[in-house]
Write a protein that binds this DNA or RNA. Structure first.
Lengths: 163, 163
DNA sequence: TATTGTTATACTCTATAACTATA
DNA sequence: TATAGTTATAGAGTATAACAATA
């Protein structure tokens, strides 16, 4: 979308920056969603859930997934149900707490995710190939400040970077 | 969400950058959506449509809005219907083409948008207040390269920056 | 025939809240 | 009582495709 039209008369720097950032993100994200759909018949949230699990081979409980993906529990149940039906993740019992499950990738899921991640990386590299290594690094650093400023500190960090 | 978990083992620079960019955008966007809902009982697409119109006082045709907002026509009809019902935009006839309309802000809509834009700007300024003016400028420039690289050149530019 | 816009439909993603089972 | 997870529901937001009116 033309996010950069969202601003109004004065267009101070922060606003211009935000609109441009939104435009960039949407351009890339739209591309990723389309490719995930076309090449793997899947969606971004499903890919993301698998990505979370790939970094936690022992699996994650539903509420951990909920926190990390920043969506409420019911949605995690839904996405997990789909992935279980496709046999790429499985629910395993947690000893000592019969209410809880641990969700983890199956062998099949791990293989599938590896392939998806490989492609995903190629799409992203292509999206940013206009920038030099120095520019990538600079952008990464600057966005780190933005992220930090807008992240609510919690006991249990919401993302892997802080985990 | 913890976008930064989406990457896998190697985590090359472009991928790390993308995940961080996505995290930042979602943090800010979530905040904006919540505020728009709480303070103005509206949504981002509706705000964006009004923003497009605010920059085109003479109004825009449905297909122009569709292109600029990068969504298909049926959705524009839906959003426009809502805004017409609230009397913040109006459809006016296009002379010489009885198929087409031109959608424009009403006086009421212009006033309302001014107030929303004022608040919106404050939320955004607050989201980026961790950065110096130099850093804002630098980020804006770097994202300009990303945008350019990922924008398909067309006769009719998709966004205001190029319009 | 092509274009403008609308209608109908379906699907994904999300939040909220009531609910079950267990702690 | 509190917690883990599920179910039910509602509402954004989106795309697709069939359609009517006009060009």
């Amino acid at each position: 979308m033309d996010m950069e039209a969202r601003g109004h008369s004065e267009h101070p720097e922060a606003l211009r920056l935000w609109l441009r950032m939104l435009t960039c993100t949407q351009l890339v994200e739209k591309q990723v969603r389309t490719q995930l759909r076309e090449q793997f018949d899947t969606t971004l949230p499903r890919f993301d859930l698998m990505a979370q699990l790939e970094r936690s081979p022992e699996g994650l409980k539903m509420n951990q997934l909920s926190r990390r993906m920043m969506v409420t529990g019911g949605n995690i149940t839904g996405i997990t149900d789909q992935l279980v039906a496709e046999e790429v993740v499985e629910r395993v019992e947690v000893e000592g707490d019969r209410r809880a499950y641990r969700v983890r990738l199956t062998t099949r899921g791990r293989k599938l995710f590896a392939e998806m991640a490989r492609q995903h990386e190629a799409w992203i590299v292509s999206a940013f190939e206009g920038l030099s290594a120095r520019e990538l690094e600079s952008l990464h650093k600057l966005l780190g400040k933005v992220k930090q400023h807008n992240t609510v500190p919690t006991d249990k960090p919401q993302d892997m970077e802080n985990a």
